[in-house]
């Protein structure tokens, strides 16, 4: 059985409908109307021990609702969840012992007490043996550079330091699973990289399962092999990151640096199917192709014969680009669901 098992998970919110203005307020007082909003709609998902999964989707897609149900602070409308054999909302406290959570927008540190005191309070709350605490604290201190600000209160430290401290708080009690909700939001690139490095190392060395929601594609590319995309409460893609780019971003562009101009290139290349010249100048030739039909090697071979090439590079479409197209609705992944993944 997988570490996290989710079956037909659904969450429906009831929302009061309120017309604007005073009249609307009065009308609401007399006659309350509600609409149902399905935030999460029959999703299925299994996550294995040790995986790092990116859980992405546009704002309001149902990411946070899913995380809240997985962590046990929200009761599902229907469907089933088990996390490490536990139904989280039924045995919330027990579940809480085995998980770590970071909400990037919010801190779980006590605002007015030094970071080290927060960690030591958490040790007591989690009833950690002294030895384990010592060991984990040393490990986290080294990886996250906590000693820089350990003795300052959360109020006084910078956003980047706060996030590092929050990560330490989440990983302190050796949780089996850590949910990270936008852990790098608003941080500069150096801190982002440090945090990604940390997550990778913890995942590798301790085997901690990581579920990450983020809008930062760097996070996804850097950390996750697997990506789950949710939109309008439904999972529209669940599979390997590479698979997604393979399947939906087959287009490549090859750029050749030319030593001498090659005006005939366009004409010559027309003979090869599925290849188009997307740019040509005296010094550079760009060729667009679908890698399902032709390999970069074949194209390169062909061009070497007709032109004097000094250098070349290949552009892969960024997942950024792919995901954006999914959000925009121009790329429909739904057809893939169940098929390949």
């Amino acid at each position: 059985m997988s570490l996290i098992e989710v079956r037909a998970l659904t969450k429906t919110y009831r929302q009061a409908v309120r017309q604007p203005g005073l009249r609307g307020a009065f009308r609401h007082l007399v006659h309350q109307r509600y609409t149902e909003r399905v935030a999460v709609d029959h999703i299925d998902m299994s996550i294995e021990r040790g995986e790092t999964v990116a859980y992405v989707g546009p704002n309001g897609a149902g990411k946070s609702t899913t995380i809240k149900m997985l962590t046990g602070i929200l009761v599902p409308t229907s469907g089933e969840i088990t996390v490490d054999g536990i139904v989280p909302h039924k045995r919330r406290m027990e579940n809480a012992r085995r998980i770590g959570v970071v909400f990037g927008q919010r801190t779980q540190l006590w605002w007015d007490i030094p970071v080290i005191e927060t960690l030591s309070l958490l040790r007591d709350i989690h009833e950690m043996p002294a030895q384990e605490y010592r060991k984990n604290l040393d490990f986290l201190t080294e990886l996250l550079g906590l000693d820089e600000f350990m003795h300052l209160t959360a109020r006084r430290i910078s956003l980047g330091q706060r996030m590092r401290a929050d990560l330490a708080a989440a990983f302190l009690h050796s949780p089996a699973i850590v949910y990270l909700d936008e852990p790098t939001i608003g941080l500069d690139i150096a801190v982002k990289e440090r945090i990604r490095g940390f997550i990778k190392q913890v995942n590798r060395e301790l085997g901690t399962t990581v579920m990450l929601t983020t809008h930062d594609l760097g996070d996804i590319q850097d950390l996750c092999r697997r990506i789950v995309i949710i939109d309008h409460g439904r999972i529209i893609f669940d599979g390997a990151l590479a698979e997604m780019t393979d399947a939906f971003a087959r287009e490549r562009v090859l750029h050749f640096q030319l030593r001498t101009p090659c005006p005939t290139a366009e004409q010559e290349l027309q003979r090869i199917p599925n290849v188009t010249v997307s740019g040509l100048s005296d010094t550079e030739l760009s060729v667009r192709f679908d890698r399902a039909f032709i390999s970069a090697r074949d194209i390169t071979g062909a061009i070497m014969q007709i032109a004097d090439v000094s250098d070349f590079r290949i552009d892969e479409p960024s997942i950024d680009h792919v995901i954006k197209r999914v959000y925009d609705g121009t790329l429909n992944l739904a057809v893939r669901k169940g098929g390949g993944a």
């Binding site: 809240k68 962590t71 046990g72 602070i73 919330r92 406290m93 027990e94 809480a96 012992r97 998980i99 959570v101 909400f103 919010r106 779980q108 958490l122 709350i125 989690h126």
Partner: peptide, 12 residues
């Protein structure tokens, strides 16, 4: 402020 989430996530 949704801070109750944080409280619910601690085993206390």
């Amino acid at each position: 402020h949704g801070e109750l989430d944080r409280i619910l996530l601690r085993p206390l």
